[in-house]
């Protein structure tokens, strides 16, 4: 149970970090951490199918799409 508490806490901290960071690449990595921890929570909630989808898409493909978009625009938020 303590494990779940720590995971949820870490997930919320990562989400807040994603809103604070001025460097958009750091923000995207923090958002990927949110997705990764959400995948672990899905697994603990007995949803292995959804956990696989979230780990493959939320943590990998979404990050790649964001980073390509940031490379084509600006990296820092003014």
């Amino acid at each position: 149970m303590i494990f779940v508490f720590l995971l949820v806490l870490l997930m919320l901290i990562a989400a807040i970090a994603a809103s604070i960071f001025k460097d958009l690449i750091s923000a995207v990595i923090a958002a990927a951490l949110v997705s990764l921890i959400a995948a672990i929570l899905f697994y603990l909630l007995q949803a292995p199918d959804v956990a696989m989808a979230e780990a493959a898409i939320g943590a990998a493909l979404v990050t790649v799409v964001f980073i390509i978009a940031i490379r084509r625009t600006k990296r820092f938020e003014e």
């Binding site: 989400a15 809103s19 958009l24 979404v62 964001f66 940031i70 938020e77």
Partner: peptide, 15 residues
């Protein structure tokens, strides 16, 4: 204000 930041927020909301 940043558009990409807004889209990051949408993705977090979806999760």
């Amino acid at each position: 204000h940043n558009l990409i930041k807004v889209i990051i927020g949408l993705s977090i909301m979806e999760t």
